[in-house]
């Protein structure tokens, strides 16, 4: 099933309406006009457009990321508060990926960097290997499992 949803105009319309805080017909008309014009203007800048396929998987991924953000906040907080006894063991690690879609990779970069304790440090386009920087690197296999199973597999389903 390939249903194409125009994401950008809908997002802009929702943003316009919530920024104005009203659902009056005039605001809706203005928002539709604004969203259409901006979409046309931006189309020349970004020739590759994103078509997310599975919105149910995206909602699941959102909650998975929310849980992970809370968990890694607690982990990073305990590392910071215990830093006088033990400085964390920082390090880089490499993860080979299967995801190739540029939008999927962009969302993966955002998820990884938004979780405290890990920052996206680079990606090699030819070998498709991701470099991560981890605040407290102790168990590399656990990080590989987290990235590949919790984030990469849903993203491959969403962006196909």
């Amino acid at each position: 099933m390939r249903r194409r949803v125009p994401v950008l105009p809908v997002f802009l319309l929702v943003m316009w309406l919530s920024l104005n805080g009203s659902l009056a017909p005039g605001q809706i008309a203005l928002g539709v006009l604004f969203a259409g014009l901006v979409t046309l203007a931006v189309a020349a800048l970004r020739p590759v457009s994103a078509w997310p396929r599975r919105f149910d998987v995206a909602v699941c991924l959102f909650f998975v990321v929310l849980v992970d953000v809370v968990r890694s906040n607690i982990a990073v907080g305990s590392v910071i508060l215990g830093a006088s006894r033990r400085q964390p063991h920082v390090g880089f690690m490499k993860i080979p990926l299967e995801l190739r879609d540029p939008h999927g990779l962009a969302v993966l970069a955002m998820i990884i960097t938004a979780c405290p304790g890990s920052v996206w440090a680079g990606h090699d386009r030819e070998s498709n290997v991701l470099t991560l920087h981890i605040l407290d690197l102790q168990d590399e296999a656990a990080w590989i499992r987290t990235v590949k199973q919790r984030y990469e597999r849903p993203l491959m389903e969403i962006f196909g």
Partner: peptide, 16 residues
């Protein structure tokens, strides 16, 4: 935290 590479992780807590 003593190293920049460790410090970059800290403010993410505040911004998320």
């Amino acid at each position: 935290l003593h190293d920049f590479h460790a410090r970059i992780h800290a403010p993410t807590m505040g911004s998320t």
